[in-house]
Design a protein around this nucleic acid. Structure first.
Length: 593
RNA sequence: GCCCUUGUAGCUCAGUCGGUAGAGCACCACCAUGGUAAGGUGGGGGUCGCCGGUUCAAAUCCGGCCGAGGGCUCCA
């Protein structure tokens, strides 16, 4: 974790104790903001203003759009209100009194009507402003710090979140106990911006998207492809080690396949439209499952053949809504690190345990240690017998408990075809991302009438488990870029070593070193441009290359290399062998530099 | 879909009151041969997102369209 991330999470920990107080502060800030806005726009209609994570907002119906200058004016007025030491006074009033008091505020009247007959109606007054409010609030604006809040943005928001309702203007703000905490939070926001994978993807020349060639479709540049290769090679090796087989399946399939699987029934909106050929309809695959099933069905299966663990880096296409697309995180074409496990009911428990253990191992390998599980159980509308659901859900719970990871249960939150576990990791600055998913599927084995012949000669239905460890390679790559802020550990770095000759006279020696590194399996590039050495170092540094070998007169004379690390440290006068073995050890360990 | 912001060179951005475009980086050429984060000089490159309107004149003003970013799910 880097400094900003560390500072912010320490600050977060301290804050936990003050959570209740902060909520009062934030909620009170919202009221102060409403007062300030009403000073500027006396006819404003005010809606709601709750405390939220890290801050607060308030929704207004205003005669015109707010701009930057307005935020400054509102901020200045808020500071004045805070400094005037107003008390927050709570009182309980009757429904009629409330209606009279807010007779010019149509949104408030709606809210009053929504309050249960039995419950009391309370208002809070802070001098110049009275709001219909359940509370709680601070005692007085004395408890608010005029230098510990900041208005962040204005956004459109529908009244009560409904598209058919009028669009209000929502002002978001952040508020803290003291200016130092505010500073930490603002630094954290700046850090998030610096880590943005879309920005780093451009700066580090990793990938691009081309709206004119199709939105949501990813182009992997050579440097991004290097990282993808490193991920995929590791992924394949580990899958073989863990008892999986690799398969490859087609990218399109006839409508028969999608009708049988049911996708044309319940998933059609997310599928690219049909391609007609010889009076038959083909569809690009949005999922790999039906194809894996075709292989399963290719021959009669015995209990002796199970479990089948078949993995594929399968590229699928889904028509995500335009507004939902976001860099690498939400795309229309992506590669799932997919696998399907077909097993007997007896094997199911052990398979689930193993899948979870394997998932955790993979996530740890990529530097993710803070992992939380979410188990989703049977929803109201579902397929499959109750006993199967129970057995599968229990197996999922046993597995997370055995691995000792914390988990939440989302009752009724599963897909209609089976229960699942999702694993969420926390990245270097504490943000959660969902990566792994392990899902039971009681639907497809039924639809495709999958069977295996059991010991007693009878045909039985196998369990089918669908799992992805990294989720999608694109999304995982996006998360990795943000997690490492572009400074990948050596095993993933697109260029591991930059060989930098001090002057042209060292070019040949540098080329020799580069060639030797390449032959030894390292990703090395020498910089033979006419730039000065300083500029070459700067460029390598900007591309976040972990190792720079500086080659000049001294090194040529002694037959050595001088190493400059990405973090600015330096090791001079190493032999090639010393450097290469240290580099290899670092790569094998998958450690960060 | 709706609200706000936004679209100028490959990238990051400037362009005042309307007078048909600029900088830095990158790229190319030449000079410089330099020891730990930018050496110098010169050059090429833009139908200012698209369509229409106002005007003698539009990157700039007006209207429409398209794209991108943030938000619309924290509930008196």
């Amino acid at each position: 974790m880097d400094e900003a991330g560390k500072a912010f999470s320490i600050c977060r920990r301290d804050i936990m104790a003050d959570e209740a107080k902060l909520e009062k502060i934030r909620h009170s800030m919202a009221h102060v903001m409403a007062e300030a806005v009403l000073e500027i726009f006396p006819d404003a209609q005010i809606a709601i203003g709750p405390a939220i994570d890290n801050g607060f907002y308030y929704d207004f119906d205003l005669p015109r759009s707010l701009n930057e200058q307005d935020l400054e004016d509102i901020t200045a007025r808020m500071k004045a209100i805070i400094r005037s030491n107003k008390e927050f006074k709570r009182s309980v009033i009757s429904r009629d009194e409330a209606k009279e008091m807010f007779k010019d505020q149509k949104y408030k009247l709606e809210l009053i009507d929504a309050i249960d007959e039995g419950s009391e109606i309370s208002i809070y007054n802070q001098g110049g402003f009275t709001d219909l409010c359940r509370g709680p609030h601070v005692e007085s604006t004395k408890e608010l710090n005029a230098d510990a809040f900041k208005l962040l943005s204005v956004a459109g928001a529908y009244w009560r979140g409904k598209e058919t309702n009028p669009m209000l203007q929502r002002i978001y703000g952040t508020a803290w106990l003291n200016p130092k905490d505010l500073r930490l939070y603002l630094d954290h926001l700046a850090d998030i911006e610096k880590r943005d994978h879309r920005k780093l993807g451009k700066e580090l020349d990793l990938f691009s998207l081309h709206e004119e060639a199709g939105p949501g479709l990813v182009y992997w540049h050579p440097r991004g492809a290097r990282i993808r290769q490193a991920i995929e090679n590791f992924w394949r090796e580990e899958h073989y080690k863990n008892g999986y087989e690799m398969i490859y399946t087609p990218h399109v399939g006839k409508s028969w396949l999608w009708e049988t699987s049911g996708h044309l029934g319940f998933y059609k909106e997310s599928m690219y439209p049909k391609m007609e050929m010889d009076n038959m309809d083909y569809y690009v695959k949005p999922m790999n499952c039906p194809f894996h099933i075709m292989i399963y069905q290719n021959s009669k299966k015995s209990y002796r053949d199970l479990p089948c663990r078949w993995a594929e880096l399968g590229t699928v296409y889904r028509y995500e809504k335009a507004g939902a697309l976001h860099g690498l995180m939400r795309v229309r074409g992506f590669t799932q690190d997919d696998a399907h496990i077909f097993c007997t009911p007896d094997q199911m428990d052990a398979e689930i345990m193993e899948v979870l253990r394997f998932s955790l191992y993979m996530l740890h390998s990529f530097g993710f240690d803070d992992i939380h599980a979410y188990i989703s159980t049977k929803p109201e509308k579902s397929v499959g017998e109750q006993e199967k659901w129970d057995a599968a859900t229990e197996a999922l719970k046993r597995a997370v408990e055995k691995e000792g990871i914390s988990y939440d249960v989302d009752e009724g939150g599963g897909a209609f075809y089976g229960p699942k576990i999702d694993l969420k990791i926390k990245d270097a600055i504490g943000r959660e991302w969902q990566l792994s998913t392990v899902q039971f599927d009681f639907n497809l084995p039924e639809r495709f009438k999958l069977t295996f012949v059991d010991k007693d000669g009878s045909e039985k239905r196998p369990y089918m488990i669908h799992r992805a460890l990294l989720g999608s390679i694109e999304r995982f790559f996006g998360v990795l870029i943000e997690h490492y802020a572009g400074a990948f550990p050596p095993w993933l770095s697109p260029d591991q070593v930059a060989v930098i000759p001090v002057a042209e006279s060292a070019n040949d020696y540098a080329c020799g070193i580069e060639k030797r590194l390449r032959l030894d399996g390292f990703r090395a590039k020498s910089d033979l441009s006419s730039d000065r050495m300083n500029a070459k170092i700067r460029k390598a540094q900007q591309m976040k290359i972990p190792y720079m070998l500086i080659i000049g007169e001294k090194e040529m004379e002694n037959g050595t290399v001088s190493v400059r690390y990405r973090n600015g440290k330096q090791d001079n006068g190493l032999t090639y062998e010393e450097f290469a073995s240290a580099l290899k050890a670092k790569i094998d360990s998958k450690e960060q530099l």
